[in-house]
């Protein structure tokens, strides 16, 4: 069982090596002559007024929060979806298994409608 995951681990390591190799190659083969102008941040032709790490819109933060909720919900749906065929095939739990998930989805739906009504999903 676990040995099935061994190639995955090797693949990730090879992937990281492949991710770093081109930059090492570029570092070795390409010229390296930094100067003040080259090293300055990309701007509209003049010196930057302020740091780049400034305050940004709170909506990004909101989206991130809602994303976590929904992503967790999907993570919870995965095991249920994977055995849904089994649930349907077993007469005793058929309806129960479906309604349970309806309740779970329903609670999230309320939150979703609330977020929508509050304008958290608006982006004008």
């Amino acid at each position: 069982m676990l040995e099935n995951y061994f190639p995955v681990l090797v693949f990730i390591i090879v992937g990281i090596v492949f991710g770093c190799m081109p930059m090492v190659l570029g570092w070795l083969l390409a010229p390296h002559r930094p100067n003040a102008e080259k090293g300055s941040a990309y701007e509209c032709g003049f010196e930057a007024f302020e740091e780049a790490r400034l305050k940004f819109d709170v909506r990004y933060y909101l989206i991130a929060i809602i994303f976590i909720l929904f992503d967790l919900e999907i993570a919870f749906l995965f095991p249920w979806a994977a055995i849904f065929k089994e649930i349907v095939g077993t007469p005793g739990v058929k309806l129960f298994g479906f309604v349970e998930m309806l309740v779970f989805l329903g609670i999230l739906l309320i939150g979703y409608v609330y977020a929508w009504a509050k304008g958290a999903l608006d982006w004008e």
Binding site: P22, M23, L25, G26, W27, L29, A30, P31, H32, R33, P34, A36, K38, G39, S40, A41, A52
Partner: peptide
Amino acid sequence: KLVFKEIVVPTK
């Protein structure tokens, strides 16, 4: 071409 181009690292 890209291999032989400098990798510029911004000072900041």
